[in-house]
Design a protein around this nucleic acid. Structure first.
Lengths: 213, 213
DNA sequence: GGGTGTGAAGGGATTCACAGCA
DNA sequence: TGCTGTGAATCCCTTCACACCC
């Protein structure tokens, strides 16, 4: 079962594994069992082994996995080895926070350009990135940037997505609460912060919730 | 099949439906078919019908669903009717953006308190909320606040989670990239922004990605 | 005709159990 | 003995097909 169809759920967990391996590697740990990894990310050991088995024989029975080797392997699968350039559109409250967010860098992402349509935002420098007018999005063409982050309003998001695709972007992280229609070759990943909050009360004890102020 | 076990995936979609119904209701639309709703949130009509059927007979054959009635019904299920008070801990870049985030309000959430440990943050007023020192978290006791949002660093998150649970919080939206260990009665929902970005390259055309700068 | 509700079929991911190797 | 790799079983969710109702 080598490199057949990889379950999406497996792909979802790989970045978790990658991050743990990255930190273990930094601590010069050489070997690690599926149980160790599983305990840290809170899944079952056989889940880890099954996930990794899709990509070939990566471990050694009786010993475990070679941390550095596995880190590199998962990095290759996810294409996280080497820096990825990204561009951000929408430097409002959320967008500005994303520009400063340290988590992206830990996976090798580098936001090298930012755009907004509001004159009072344009020209500002945030985290070493100068905010430009959205009309200058065209300048990105041919600069080997394939990842875009959308942090504009729901009403502008579709328009911005189109513009990003025009300049060659084929992977979009979308924070706007709206479904984006894009060509098949473009991958969208949506993060809708409020949606996750909205289903929290459902899982909480009934008596506590819903007491209006 | 009435009120048996509701699939988690169904619960995940309900807030989507709720938001659409909310906006249709504001436009005074009276009826709506499963297809209309399905097209907007981009799922199949039978998926919508199956989801709703878990909660009883909500529609009328030949007509569709009564928008206002369905809105109220889903609101009851998710417990979104009435305002929910919430508290935020960690007023860094991300936390400050969350304090100003308009999306929470549209689901009836109201962040009524914010805390940070850095003296230069304490005392600031953001979006009408005064930032207090984390040591004052105890003041929340008995104030009918059950939802907490954690936007602190990975190293502090577990500690903050414990403190929130001590003052009665039983639902936590966690933005820190770490697994939180909590009592069974407490519900955690994790949002790890970088994780979603990290699996974007996997789904993108291989040739484009990984060209180091 | 138009549209809902639902048992049954189908598909995908998790879990199990164990063979096999260091 | 310790730990991986993996077919088989199980579970959960999606999809289908159609009975039934306005």
């Amino acid at each position: 079962m080598r490199y057949h169809k990889i379950p999406d759920e497996t792909v979802r967990r790989l970045p978790l594994y990658w991050r743990v391996l990255h930190s273990l590697s930094a601590k010069d740990q050489v070997h690690m069992s599926s149980k160790t990894l599983a305990d840290i990310v809170h899944v079952n050991p056989w889940q880890v082994r099954k996930d990794l088995s899709y990509f070939g024989t990566l471990g050694t029975p009786g010993v475990g996995y070679d941390v550095k080797k596995l880190l590199k392997e998962i990095g290759n699968i996810l294409r996280l080895n080497g820096t990825q350039k990204a561009v951000l559109v929408g430097v409002g409250n959320l967008g500005a926070a994303l520009l400063k967010y340290p988590g992206f860098e830990s996976y090798g992402f580098d936001i090298i350009a930012a755009f907004d349509k509001h004159p009072r935002k344009i020209g500002k420098t945030i985290n070493n990135v100068i905010v430009k007018d959205v009309s200058q999005l065209n300048d990105l063409k041919g600069r080997d940037i394939y990842i875009g982050i959308i942090a504009v309003s729901a009403t502008s998001a579709q328009d911005i997505a189109g513009k990003l695709i025009d300049v060659g972007i084929c992977g979009i992280l979308n924070f706007a609460p709206v479904y984006l229609t894009v060509p098949k070759k473009v991958t969208i990943r949506n993060i809708d912060i409020a949606l996750d909050l909205a289903r929290l009360p459902y899982y909480m004890p009934a008596k506590l919730v819903g007491k209006a102020i």
